[in-house]
Design a protein around this nucleic acid. Sequence first.
DNA 1: TGTCTAGAGAATGTGCACATTATCCTGTCA
DNA 2: TGACAGGATAATGTGCACATTCTCTAGACA
Lengths: 247, 247
Amino acid sequence: MARRRAKKAVRRRSPKGNVAIDDAVYGAIRRAMLSGRLRPGTKLQEPVLARLLKVSRERVRKALHRLVHERWLEAVPNRGTFVPAPSVEELRELYEVRAILEDAVVAKLARGTANGSAQKLKSHVAEERSAVKSGDRSRLFGLSTEFHALLADLCGNEQLSSTLRALLPRSSLHFSLFAPPELHNCAGPHDHGDIVKAVLAGDADKARTLMRDHLSGLVEMLSAREAPRAAMPLDEIFRELSPAKRS
Amino acid sequence: MARRRAKKAVRRRSPKGNVAIDDAVYGAIRRAMLSGRLRPGTKLQEPVLARLLKVSRERVRKALHRLVHERWLEAVPNRGTFVPAPSVEELRELYEVRAILEDAVVAKLARGTANGSAQKLKSHVAEERSAVKSGDRSRLFGLSTEFHALLADLCGNEQLSSTLRALLPRSSLHFSLFAPPELHNCAGPHDHGDIVKAVLAGDADKARTLMRDHLSGLVEMLSAREAPRAAMPLDEIFRELSPAKRS
DNA sequence: TGTCTAGAGAATGTGCACATTATCCTGTCA
DNA sequence: TGACAGGATAATGTGCACATTCTCTAGACA
């Protein structure tokens, strides 16, 4: 009973802030992956992450399950959660499916878009260009992926959008792990601008061709599998990212 | 301490049987949904299911999370887990995405299949025909869905296969909730047989047309939204299904 | 009579303690 | 010296108790 009262006095958790905490934990781990410093095979231990992020182990657990579900991570029963080592074969298959879906996406968009779509697309491409200049790798990666999601969103078919979005985390994983460190090698923003132009011009055939070429180019780049960055201890990775967790 | 020893004496859980229990709980709830007796809006309460299935609440919790993830169910924070009421609009969107993917599937297969594919497809269609005759609604629903998954599997692209499979639970949900009770109204096995013929004949165009018509036919049928079966208390539904849980 | 409020009851959410399992290290024996 | 067995340690997995939130109902008041 004494214990019960003590607990009640100590608890100072904001009422509706639970999902916010969950999202912060999820985001921190996801950002760590996007940074490209987590090498395939790395084990993400629940107690370690809980200590580094200063949350209970259950929160880490939940976030890890979510990431496994989205295929950012892989779980082995009674063993733990690991950073996957996706194969080139998987890369090819993944981008084949993306090509099927995104071909349909740009074809639909070229046939006609909703009001405001043109503005959204243009400003997104502009944002990508500024990210290239500032040299923020994580930010550019995020924006590049989001471009494809944005296209799908503008189709007005939620199922199409969510189906493609489900493929993007795994796609980003390949990017994080195997993209070259130099940003100017990424064939991203330039292609994106051309695709937008074709779509807005209503040229479906050109848009489809550009999209397929764009995706093929990414496959080629990622198949090279440039040597990844040097490994870094977990605590250093998360120490760097911890400020963003609170924003 | 006495409590601790008592626990140890009572526990008689098989060592590796945990995942089996989880699967059983998951399967029981899924089967309940496929039976078509759970109406949209029904709340699936954790304590009730735990009592009916004779497992701990945590197991039920885990299974519900999984079903929510697969979009069989919908969760509302602090409120519970509910049987969804998917709209006709969603139905159309869903089948549009399926058409995009399955169009590509049959086109790939018509270009050439792996050894043994023909046999698998033929025997599957035969199985569907026998299910129609036996009048087992749940079984036919399961087989009909599995036919589309089988086609995707035979493509040899795991990503394509898993992407389509991710859409099938939600698709089955529409089927369970809104398909007419009479089995002979289902435009299933007959279409499937024709598609198999076209694929094995290498006629890609015909296979694609048949697949698109087949999916359109399903949309039309499900859009009618026949009156669902009468509601039934949860305990009766799960009492009927409990034997299968142990098999 | 309709609406709003307070409280009882029951559901969901979460931290913790403990059980179970894997890993690593050490010592022994061939 | 190498391989293997056994135990120490630390991880993952799970049931439970409690906190929090929601729902539903009875009753007061306009």
